[in-house]
Write a protein that binds this DNA or RNA. Structure first.
Lengths: 230, 230
DNA sequence: CAGTGGTCTAGACCACAAG
DNA sequence: TTGTGGTCTAGACCACTGG
């Protein structure tokens, strides 16, 4: 291949930063200059630098040029898979048990987060997810029926709400929060651990066309680790 | 602007998926077809679809075409800022206190993770990070001097190791793990909380040109929340 | 084999912002 | 004002892989 690939340019720029040829805070040559140096089109350089900018390693501004970030904000990408896939990916058998299913007036902290009127009736689900028949994760979920058309016919005993929603209600966005919390009596009972044990908790709210679809609290027992590579 | 932007195409494709025009698992038209429909160049369609593929919403394969993902693996991007910026971003004053600094033989779990000989001497640091003079996070760090040239002259009392490394040792990659753990006596003492309280813990190892630079354990007291938007 | 995405080019116009 | 990145185009060749 006689053409210069954007990956080669990206790696070369990376190497120069690693080798301190271009130091933190330095201005690096313009796209046009780099294109000339590498003997390629400017678009190719652009793509290479754009990718590096997305990782936060360099910062680009029109007219001001491209600089090596002084305090790079590392961006880590987390995969948020289905619980079922997460378990099966560990080579274990997945099952889930629906512990509660019913319409209930939403508590204030839920309706507030969903921007819904207080005490409106929402579908409330509590699910225990199992790996090889051992408790894997306890889920407490509220669903806004108005934003989840078709949920009334979903076979939630066979297919977890998690899975049904992912396949049927494409979401436009959401917030995810990670925290540690002591296990409540209910959580401890479901997961078969001691009350007060340190749980890894993921709280999630998802939106579809401006309306809140569901809020979820996922509780993982001690020993759970969420890992990513940067 | 009479030109069609890649963002417009991306949003239109997104809208069609949301509206179930193209359902999960469906094949969508080829780049050439979409370019004809939108009256733009194929490269423009390519960029729009490439961005959507990066989010996991669609899957692309040569010859097979582009499909709406059946089980989209949501990708969340987390910003990993400097502790100082994290604190200052909350409008609080940042300080840190170096509790321990010295060379010690690395314990096995550290040397194993860093792929170094057992009991090799590494620089060991314990740091308490403060926000408005209250404990914010406790950090336990081991540094491989061989991969961190210049660290011997770093003024670690004034500039946290976190910050010095980010500015001086560009890393090529790393692993980050998030978990919940009960506070040890030492951690509890430093953070001024009760032993056994649920800590949010981030464990990180970073590499530079194939050599481990540093392993870190960051302990956040109860109440800490790490949030991201997808 | 042939259709699809992946990438590169050469050129162009434009938006933005530093000076 | 003017240099820099942001984007689009029309065309081309190629890599991969399904049929």
């Amino acid at each position: 291949m006689r053409q210069v690939s954007y990956q080669k340019i990206r790696d070369e720029v990376l190497a120069r930063i690693h080798a301190h040829v271009w130091q933190a805070g330095d201005l690096i040559p313009s796209e046009a200059d780099l294109a000339a140096e590498f003997g390629c089109a400017r678009a190719t350089v652009n793509r290479a630098l754009r990718e590096l900018a997305e990782t936060g390693l360099i910062e680009r501004r029109r007219k001001a040029g491209t600089r090596v970030s002084k305090n790079p904000v590392r961006k880590a990408t987390l995969d948020i898979p289905l619980v079922r896939r997460e378990v099966e990916g560990r080579g274990q058998r997945y099952r889930h048990r629906l512990l509660l299913k019913g319409d209930q007036p939403a508590p204030d902290h839920v309706s507030a987060r969903m921007s819904l009127p207080a005490r409106q009736d929402l579908l409330h689900l509590k699910t225990l997810h199992l790996a090889d028949d051992l408790p894997y994760m306890f889920e407490d979920r509220w669903i806004n029926r108005a934003a989840a058309a078709g949920i009334e016919n979903a076979p939630l005993e066979a297919l977890s709400a998690n899975e049904w929603l992912v396949q049927n209600i494409p979401i436009s966005g959401g917030d995810i929060t990670f925290l540690a919390a002591p296990a409540s009596a209910e959580e401890a009972g479901a997961l078969n651990i001691e009350t007060g044990a340190a749980l890894f908790v993921i709280e999630r709210i998802t939106w579809r066309m401006g309306a809140a679809v569901t809020v979820t609290r996922l509780c993982y027992p001690p020993g759970y680790r969420m890992t990513t590579r940067i």
